[in-house]
């Protein structure tokens, strides 16, 4: 796991912050919580890596709020994932969620709703 965190941190350093092992574990817990909540199963934990590195590029995230925001984003991601068929790839959903988050900067149910609507309009 350490090597994964090191790998993520190399990416995060560019944006001026680092993730601790403890915080990474909290994000993992949030992922378990989210899949349980949506009656879902995740087979590949590297999705966490993808979420963290993707959203680290957002200007809304910083050393103080990243844990709180990433927890919300993980929950939001599985909410969206469980509402869409597998014809929508994980990458497409993450990219659209990132774009919607970046344009509004708010983390709420509205974000999940607009992301789903935008994906369905394609």
């Amino acid at each position: 796991m350490n090597s994964i965190i090191t790998q993520i941190n190399q990416q995060l350093t560019i944006h001026g912050y680092q993730i601790s092992k403890e915080d990474f574990n909290k994000l993992k817990q949030e992922l378990h919580h989210a899949v349980l909540h949506f009656n879902w199963v995740e087979s590949d934990l590297s999705i966490l890596n993808k979420i963290i590195t993707k959203f680290s590029e957002s200007s809304y995230l910083n050393q103080n709020n990243y844990l709180f925001l990433l927890q919300g984003i993980i929950f939001c991601y599985y909410g969206i994932r469980s509402h869409l068929s597998s014809s929508y790839s994980d990458e497409i959903i993450l990219t659209e969620l990132f774009n919607q988050f970046n344009s509004h900067g708010e983390l709420n149910t509205e974000l999940a709703y607009t992301t789903i609507q935008s994906l369905k309009r394609r």
């Binding site: 879902w40 199963v41 087979s43 590949d44 999705i47 929508y88 790839s89 994980d90």
Partner: peptide, 22 residues
């Protein structure tokens, strides 16, 4: 094998799926 078949089930688009499909 489970991981591989989940990807196949999702047409290589996603690594996750509903509990029922799992």
């Amino acid at each position: 094998m489970i991981k591989k078949l989940i990807l196949q089930f999702n047409h290589e688009n996603s690594s996750s799926l509903s509990k029922r499909n799992y």
